[in-house]
């Protein structure tokens, strides 16, 4: 096998592999929906979080505006503390996002 043929095939292979990784990251995963703008955090307290889990989308009017970053138990108020990161543009609506929207 010719050296340059090998190089060509290896090049094709590496490009295909990286394309596969990009496909996974952009089309399958949620990298594309990551906002590059600065996120800010909103904290909310719930008496019961139901089935809410970390990384669940936070929606306003059906649009994903952020994700649940962290769920903790608050030792003082005995309530669940939910931290959500949301892009600043949708700050007005995200504060009113309900738990139901978050779990949707």
């Amino acid at each position: 096998m010719n050296r340059s043929t090998i190089d060509l095939w290896v090049g094709v292979f590496v490009v295909a592999g990286i394309a596969g990784l990009l496909f996974l990251a952009l089309k399958v995963g949620n990298l594309a929906s990551f906002s590059t703008s600065q996120m800010y955090q909103v904290q909310a307290k719930f008496a019961n979080i139901g089935g809410l889990k970390a990384r669940a989308p936070v929606k306003s009017a059906g649009v994903v505006i952020g994700r649940v970053a962290d769920i903790r138990f608050d030792n003082e108020s005995y309530e669940a503390l939910v931290a959500r990161s949301s892009p600043p543009a949708s700050s007005a609506s995200s504060t009113s996002a309900s738990k139901r929207a978050a779990t949707a």
Partner: peptide
Amino acid sequence: FWSQMQAAVDVRNDILNGV
């Protein structure tokens, strides 16, 4: 099919861990 997939698959936790 695609949108549920994108909502559920996390780049760091799922894809990067797979890599």
